[in-house]
Measured scan of single mutants.
Amino acid sequence: CHSECLGNCSQPDDPTKCVACRNFYLDGRCVETCPPPYYHFQDWRCVNFSFCQDLHHKCKNSRRQGCHQYVIHNNKCIPECPSGYTMNSSNLLCTPCLGPCPKVCHLLEGEKTIDSVTSAQELRGCTVINGSLIINIRGGNNLAAELEANLGLIEEISGYLKIRRSYALVSLSFFRKLRLIRGETLEIGNYSFYALDNQNLRQLWDWSKHNLTITQGKLFFHYNPKLCLSEIHKMEEVSGTKGRQERNDIALKTNGDQASCENELLKFSYIRTSFDKILLRWEPYWPPDFRDLLGFMLFYKEAPYQNVTEFDGQDACGSNSWTVVDIDPPLRSNDPKSQNHPGWLMRGLKPWTQYAIFVKTLVTFSDERRTYGAKSDIIYVQTDATNPSVPLDPISVSNSSSQIILKWKPPSDPNGNITHYLVFWERQAEDSELFELDYCLKGLKLPSRTWSPPFESEDSQKHNQSEYEDSAGECCSCPKTDSQILKELEESSFRKTFEDYLHNVVFVPRKT
């Protein structure tokens, strides 16, 4: 048989008469490798580009789960590009990614509803959504962080984005990388972005840091009482949809009607710091009717980097990364020049730590249904340095008659930039024990000054392991946590139920 035959053949030295091919099969003959313009397919066939392209389009058009959109890589027609490569849609070739590779997620039936953290986790790592997304989240724990972890990498949506009755959302900033909504599939009414009845939605994105392009379709905003109209108009300008909307697409009466839409800028007039305090004062603000001013709200939190936005980490279910302080308005003076500047002394802060701070007014709604208010920009203030805590785990070892090696770990709280350490030492008198000992005694162990690591005695271990207080009263049991108490109650309830079950099964009433 021919060298490319495997198993047997019907005619000697003829690659077209093989029972099976050793390498690849091409047009009725066995070959060692697939010549151009053919590609290896499933490690035994040679196919042309049209064959591989037909497989790709067949799966793409069917949208069946589990099928493969075949691509070409290293002269092979394979189910998908290997790690580190992405497909070129024009020629199906796998090309190296520039940075992290995109991950295209194809949605069944063309859309997916995100109504819980669990459903959001199914899209973790996706960068391109081939379909439409509907966000409908009523509640949950730590929602802002969970949504950002699972949806934060999405850069492109081919269909539309719909935010509907998501009472738990305060902001859409968890879509931190969303840059493009194509609108290839539109919501009824030709809408590519749809926001309806979101009672706590206050911000779409921080438009000073976020760009969003909507290729096709219109915007729809109705019944978002805490979303200011200025935020919607800003989205029109940034996304390129200005002029597409009709009169009733953006409701003037049901958007922002319960919001404090600040239209003035508060400026800080005085800032002073110490290692654990920050004193702030800002310019006074009074609405047209000074009785509408209820006070100020001061927001602050630790910020290692200057990239904080107002609604980071917030949701309507209680999660809030900001510390909020309510401040009463100052006494009002008739003389504008003698107006008191409101302020606040922030206490209990960490030394040498940068804080993000902003302040906003708290006002009631005027009778004319106009909203007044003022808010400052987010500023960054760093507390002063102070003395560091003591170095940890000092170790001293003498390696000769004239040297001592000293080692330690950095302090747990540096409280500033540590530039150097101060080492103090003092000579001590020799131990009298060394002169009084009889060095001729056998088995004498000389006193040693070398360091030995501390260890816990058996008594201390027994005390720590004991669940009861000892007789001397030195140790006591740790208080039980809520989960331990709940577990004990469940076990007790189970024992009672099981005992009742045994009584009912074992003891049967005697027939009379």
Results as ranks from 00 to 15, higher is better:
193 F>K: 00
128 V>T: 12
398 S>R: 05
404 I>Y: 01
293 L>H: 06
317 C>W: 13
305 Y>V: 14
319 S>C: 10
370 R>S: 06
215 T>K: 04
344 W>S: 08
158 S>T: 09
283 E>F: 07
269 S>C: 12
293 L>K: 06
106 H>D: 04
113 T>W: 12
395 I>G: 10
337 K>R: 06
212 L>H: 01
189 G>Q: 02
194 Y>W: 12
201 L>Y: 00
390 V>P: 15
286 W>E: 05
290 F>Q: 03
354 Q>E: 09
280 L>S: 01
404 I>C: 03
296 F>N: 04
295 G>T: 04
107 L>H: 10
107 L>T: 11
302 E>M: 13
108 L>C: 03
153 L>C: 12
223 Y>G: 09
122 E>D: 06
242 K>E: 15
292 D>P: 06
282 W>G: 00
284 P>M: 13
363 V>S: 06
273 T>Q: 11
160 Y>S: 12
177 K>H: 06
383 T>S: 03
201 L>N: 00
298 L>H: 00
147 L>F: 11
118 T>G: 15
206 D>W: 03
225 P>H: 10
380 Y>Q: 03
106 H>S: 08
227 L>K: 00
249 D>R: 05
179 R>L: 07
323 T>R: 04
317 C>T: 03
208 S>F: 13
160 Y>V: 03
249 D>S: 04
353 T>F: 04
251 A>H: 04
363 V>E: 02
322 W>H: 04
336 P>Y: 02
154 I>A: 09
156 E>Q: 07
320 N>W: 14
178 L>F: 03
126 C>G: 00
108 L>R: 11
154 I>F: 01
155 E>R: 15
305 Y>H: 12
174 F>W: 06
301 K>L: 08
297 M>K: 12
368 E>A: 11
288 P>Q: 09
212 L>V: 13
238 V>N: 13
141 N>Q: 08
300 Y>S: 06
378 I>C: 08
349 L>H: 00
384 D>S: 07
404 I>A: 03
187 E>M: 14
351 P>C: 07
351 P>G: 10
167 Y>Q: 15
361 T>F: 03
223 Y>R: 10
117 V>M: 15
370 R>N: 15
319 S>K: 06
267 K>T: 10
297 M>P: 00
302 E>T: 09
141 N>H: 12
122 E>G: 09
233 H>T: 14
286 W>M: 06
206 D>C: 10
404 I>V: 14
178 L>V: 03
198 N>W: 00
216 Q>K: 00
234 K>I: 09
149 A>K: 14
170 V>R: 04
127 T>H: 03
296 F>Q: 14
177 K>M: 04
227 L>S: 01
323 T>N: 13
300 Y>M: 14
169 L>V: 12
248 N>G: 08
132 S>N: 13
215 T>W: 01
233 H>M: 01
114 I>Y: 05
135 I>W: 11
380 Y>V: 07
383 T>N: 00
261 C>Y: 02
326 D>G: 06
305 Y>S: 06
160 Y>L: 04
372 Y>N: 11
175 F>N: 00
345 L>F: 08
205 W>S: 01
279 L>V: 13
246 E>M: 09
300 Y>A: 04
140 G>F: 06
254 T>C: 05
137 I>G: 12
103 K>N: 05
247 R>G: 12
281 R>V: 03
394 P>G: 05
134 I>L: 13
280 L>F: 01
407 K>V: 13
301 K>C: 02
230 S>P: 15
379 I>T: 15
194 Y>I: 10
206 D>Q: 05
323 T>Q: 14
151 L>F: 07
264 E>V: 02
129 I>M: 04
165 R>E: 09
125 G>L: 12
133 L>S: 00
193 F>G: 00
107 L>M: 07
394 P>F: 01
231 E>N: 02
178 L>S: 00
118 T>Q: 01
377 D>L: 01
277 K>P: 00
201 L>Q: 02
257 D>E: 05
200 N>L: 09
280 L>H: 00
104 V>A: 08
126 C>A: 01
156 E>R: 02
213 T>W: 05
263 N>T: 08
237 E>A: 05
166 S>R: 00
338 S>G: 09
107 L>C: 14
170 V>I: 12
319 S>P: 08
210 H>W: 08
346 M>V: 04
328 D>L: 03
233 H>S: 12
181 I>R: 00
358 F>P: 00
206 D>G: 05
256 G>T: 01
169 L>T: 09
227 L>D: 00
125 G>V: 08
372 Y>D: 08
197 D>N: 15
146 E>Y: 15
348 G>F: 05
263 N>P: 13
294 L>M: 13
269 S>A: 09
284 P>Q: 14
229 L>T: 06
385 A>K: 11
410 P>T: 13
233 H>R: 05
374 A>H: 06
349 L>N: 00
104 V>N: 02
252 L>Q: 11
180 L>P: 00
269 S>Q: 06
159 G>D: 01
368 E>V: 15
141 N>E: 14
204 L>M: 15
120 A>H: 10
297 M>F: 01
137 I>S: 02
333 S>C: 09
211 N>L: 10
148 E>V: 03
266 L>M: 08
257 D>R: 05
355 Y>K: 00
186 L>Q: 06
284 P>K: 08
157 I>G: 00
244 R>P: 11
337 K>Y: 12
360 K>T: 03
175 F>D: 00
344 W>K: 11
350 K>F: 08
393 D>I: 04
320 N>C: 09
203 Q>G: 03
358 F>C: 01
264 E>C: 04
391 P>E: 02
219 L>I: 13
148 E>G: 06
136 N>H: 10
407 K>M: 14
354 Q>R: 09
201 L>G: 00
129 I>C: 09
187 E>G: 13
291 R>C: 13
318 G>V: 06
255 N>W: 04
195 A>P: 00
146 E>K: 15
128 V>K: 05
274 S>R: 09
404 I>Q: 02
257 D>Y: 08
338 S>L: 10
315 D>G: 09
303 A>F: 14
343 G>I: 15
350 K>I: 03
409 K>N: 15
262 E>R: 09
358 F>A: 15
354 Q>S: 04
267 K>W: 07
195 A>C: 15
115 D>C: 03
334 N>K: 14
293 L>C: 08
226 K>D: 13
166 S>I: 07
288 P>N: 11
321 S>T: 13
358 F>R: 13
112 K>H: 14
334 N>P: 08
330 P>L: 08
333 S>T: 08
320 N>I: 04
108 L>E: 08
298 L>R: 00
212 L>T: 10
309 T>H: 12
174 F>S: 06
391 P>S: 02
115 D>Y: 02
203 Q>A: 11
252 L>Y: 05
166 S>L: 08
203 Q>I: 05
162 K>R: 09
368 E>F: 14
351 P>S: 08
237 E>P: 02
200 N>F: 10
313 G>F: 03
317 C>L: 10
166 S>K: 00
169 L>I: 10
314 Q>P: 02
323 T>I: 03
359 V>L: 08
378 I>Y: 03
274 S>G: 04
147 L>Q: 02
155 E>N: 10
213 T>P: 02
255 N>S: 08
338 S>D: 01
382 Q>P: 02
170 V>Y: 12
156 E>F: 04
186 L>E: 07
342 P>Y: 05
211 N>C: 10
187 E>L: 09
304 P>D: 10
204 L>S: 05
339 Q>A: 09
334 N>M: 07
279 L>P: 00
